[in-house]
Design a protein around this nucleic acid. Structure first.
Lengths: 225, 225
DNA sequence: CGCTAAATAATGTGATCACATTAATCGTTA
DNA sequence: TAACGATTAATGTGATCACATTATTTAGCG
């Protein structure tokens, strides 16, 4: 009779994770403003849980407080993009290396499942899932690293890049050559299977680099080395 | 006539920065719990600004939400310490390198001022200022990097390490050999003057490493390589 | 039609109250 | 004296209202 205890202890938490996933799916457009009452109405909760969630997301730089006190989805700049990606390289390849040894058969199976769904999203030009499942794939790997400090930093970077990724991916999908966006996921799985740390690190970096390359190209921004 | 406009636009902001500095001064002891009404009384504000500030600090991992819904200052573990410091090495040496070229005479003078105060704090065994001014020294350097993504990450790490630093420094000061804690600040200033990026990066790393070494030693934790 | 100014609406912030949950205290009993 | 149970206190969360500030719309005028 629905005796299951709710998934989240507080409404604030529920709202937070709801918004968080929405952001990681690219449902928030850069530059758009987010209002307390808007979110509250959409999720059918009062202002309080929304206030706290937005404060939290703002602290994680997923959202931005404008000086007119309004909340908005941050826009991307050339320098910010480069900064986000150089940090992603560093932190994520480190996390992958730490995680590798702890990835067992069950974890491997889950990774393959995620990758299957990810490929399907690409085939179906389902941009939202394409973006989200890519993050899920990486998150699943890093979750075995046992890193409790670095992981939140990585996720903060994802929250910052997701709206921009969505914008670019939409354009990319329109231009038709979306499914040519070869990711390195299969090779990553292979490197893990062979426990080849050096190769894994490079592949993670390449996988991330592929993304930023496309984004820089689309924006006509200088390609980072 | 007190026509000056207040330093912060909102009470929440004022409370946040007040708490933030207190944390960076090591006024919060690891494991201690922080209550809404306690802070509200101490700063003579209502619950609302405090709620939002604590939510913010929690998102930055300066504070921790326990599963009994209570808020506490996180405790340190051997692995967490190592994680924080390896990330500090990476991000801070990068930031220092980016900043170096932009540091002019005025900035240099300010750095020397901070360092003077820092040395005085050491001489006077003023642990709070010793910790805080060390952060200020580093922050001042990195502020010229123009990095808008990485700087918040670095500051989040500082907020996480500060309470633990204070604990160790107190012990260290008691044991008497506090002023033997030779920092690398003078050499750092020299490297900046000579615009020697490689040396600066190494010095930043050494400076950070000196700190963690003492901490690990005090705790009887394995020294990282 | 274009521009300005007044009026109206919308928004984030703060205050206060209510409440469920958890912690602390105290009295009782063995 | 120690341990258990009941009672009281404290705490974070949520709801609602008020308000100052900022946006948006509307009206008026040239």
């Amino acid at each position: 009779m629905s005796n299951e205890r709710p998934r989240f202890k507080t409404q604030q938490e529920a709202v937070y994770f709801e918004l968080r996933e929405a952001i990681l799916r690219g449902k928030f457009q850069p530059g758009n403003s987010v209002t307390l009452r808007g979110v509250a109405e959409m999720l059918d909760v009062s202002l309080m849980p929304v206030r706290e969630s937005l404060r939290r997301l703002t602290a994680e730089r997923a959202l931005q407080l404008l000086d007119n006190r309004r909340i908005a989805v941050p826009t991307m700049s050339e320098s910010r993009l480069e900064e986000i990606y150089i940090t992603r390289f560093t932190l994520e390849s480190f996390a992958a290396e730490k995680a590798m040894a702890n990835i067992d058969e069950a974890a491997m199976a889950k990774l393959e499942d995620i990758n299957t769904l990810h490929n399907r999203a690409i085939a179906e030009r389902d941009v939202e899932n394409y973006i989200y499942l890519n993050f899920e794939f990486h998150r699943q790997i890093y979750s075995y690293s046992g890193l409790e400090v670095i992981l939140p930093l990585i996720e903060s970077l994802w929250l910052q890049i997701a709206p921009f990724m969505r914008m670019i991916s939409d354009r990319f999908a329109q231009e038709g050559d979306f499914d040519e966006s070869e990711d390195k996921h299969l090779e990553i799985l292979e490197a893990i299977r062979k426990q080849n740390a050096t190769r894994l690190k490079h592949l993670i970096q390449d996988d991330i680099l592929d993304g930023v390359r496309i984004q820089q190209e689309m924006m006509g921004w200088g390609v980072s080395n």
